[in-house]
Design a protein around this nucleic acid. Sequence first.
DNA 1: GCACTGAGTGGTACCGGTAACATCCTGGTT
DNA 2: AACCAGGATGTTACCGGTACCACTCAGTGC
Lengths: 352, 352
Amino acid sequence: MGQTGPADADQPGGSAVMRDVARVAGVSKQTVSRVLNDSPAVRPETRNRVLAAVAELGYLPNQAARTLTTGQTRNIGVIAYDVADFGPANVVQGIAFAAQEVGYTVSVAPMRSLGHMPVRDAATRLLERSVDGLITIAPHRDIAKALLDLPRKVPVIAVDDSLDPLVPVIAADQVEGSRRATEQLLHLGHRTVHHLAGPSGWIAAEQRREGWLAALTAAGAPVPDPLVGDWSAASGYELGRVLAVDPDVTAVHAANDQMAVGLLRALYEAGRRVPEQVSVIGFDDIPEAAYTIPPLSTVRVNFGEIGRRCISVLVEQLRSGTTTARQQRPWIPTELVIRASTGRPPATPAGP
Amino acid sequence: MGQTGPADADQPGGSAVMRDVARVAGVSKQTVSRVLNDSPAVRPETRNRVLAAVAELGYLPNQAARTLTTGQTRNIGVIAYDVADFGPANVVQGIAFAAQEVGYTVSVAPMRSLGHMPVRDAATRLLERSVDGLITIAPHRDIAKALLDLPRKVPVIAVDDSLDPLVPVIAADQVEGSRRATEQLLHLGHRTVHHLAGPSGWIAAEQRREGWLAALTAAGAPVPDPLVGDWSAASGYELGRVLAVDPDVTAVHAANDQMAVGLLRALYEAGRRVPEQVSVIGFDDIPEAAYTIPPLSTVRVNFGEIGRRCISVLVEQLRSGTTTARQQRPWIPTELVIRASTGRPPATPAGP
DNA sequence: GCACTGAGTGGTACCGGTAACATCCTGGTT
DNA sequence: AACCAGGATGTTACCGGTACCACTCAGTGC
């Protein structure tokens, strides 16, 4: 009190409470409360007096007090593994925008590692804060597993995957995305398509690999062993050096754009031209993908939409009170973006 | 009540309150409170009884109630413009990690646009939530300006810049970073260095430009007009096409890596080899920078450290109660990362 | 043996809102 | 004129913690 500096010499910005507003407006606390909650049962003139007092005092309602009585925090918790990464970051941004539109705030609890404990810790921290709902960005099986037995007292939505049938999932249709990417390469005439896969345990890695495999199988194409990276450009580069020396490789589908970036450089250094000798297609459509050498064909994921969808499903659950799990198809469609890194195979193996 | 599903049939995860714990442990509410707050004035045996009851009931303290009496939320608000972008995303992640280590949670309020209103709105939303402190990621003058007159009743920390002398700033030493990047190119023998600048009004753009200018001036090198982009690879590409046709251009410092990526492709398409004919150096060190063609020299910014520093300064302010603004040097050092995109100039203009 | 200390515990008021109910006041009916 | 409906407002009791003070009961010094 009076410690904060010169700013609270006059009231505004200080700690006016509802009682103060009531006094200034000449009404009761309860009437102030009604005005702030848009109750219709207030005379317009009274309402104006109250609003004037609110403005004069710079009054801001105390959310903690409101939460204590209503049991509603209007706050949503987000548990995420790598919030700085392109995908998760955009999902979180989508969540935050959508949340703020419906009057919710967002608390973010990042995890340092993939274990059981970090997930539980993050969830517990958020639940103590009394969030109304929880969104888990669980790109890895271990996370999804850990979410099964968290002290759940609020609705939960999972991005990418959940192992609990009661928890709705929102995710991009990654199987379909990789299937179409692979198909595209086969249509161009490639005998088969190699795969630069994501690390094991990651939902995205599994689904993209599954889509790739499905396309090959459907076309009756040979299925080469996928090379497993760790999502990084560095791993894409290292594995790319292996692929580059194999003359059978004419088309590669990388499980994400970063690995594709590393792959492009490995091919370049090995003197294998893209797309004339080798076609490459990535996944995600990171901003740089349009400006690699050559511009990278890829599968665009609408991460923002995933975030928005999470909020809309979650607030629907909060409003209805029911857990209407897994009704509608949760898959957000992806979009095949063809740039310059894909083309017809060199006219060596098969000819008319 | 009893609506949430089968999960609260047994108590755990349900809504046990402190009174329940007290009853089970055979003590008073107050003693439970003491145990949970690590008060030394509790007999070990009593403490264990209480902790057992807590575990048995799956009790989680209600943060709203605690906040109401203590006035402390242990929650920190972050106002940010483009949370999905590489820099801000990593700052936010650094903030979140550091915050959780000292027992704080983080609420994120993103802004859709740069105006005055969005900033005030975001701040107001957070202040209603009763945050103990506010961190603003204000990369643009307009944002810094808008922060001047927000209803401030908590300590504020600004990343990049603030116009209020009472608000401490945490930022990377971008002037120095660009100065050294430019110096490096001059040392290699380039007559001068061109600049691909960021858009006007952005603090980072101004500081990086300033560092570039300082290096040229100090070396007595001619100062070409900088080309102004918008941070995107697309703008780097467009402006790069202009630079590519100018035979005088032998070295370019781009204000960020994304523009540098676009520039690299423009140079490649124009047949100007990097670094044999043109040297390029970026800024930020995005993960892809090490795998462009050729690998991009750049200035590494430790965004995570910026976030951590924000928290340490903020919690220090919260603990001391004083606003010890701008004591220590707030600049986080950057690191020059030399890869393959920089080299000696072609031996055309000047000879020994 | 008595006052005294201090550790351990309990009782009560209160934080700032909202829910539920009580009360007041107006205008229209009969 | 008395009555009543219902709109506008006030009163009171909580929500679930913590601060503050009161109390009990050993062990200590005289």
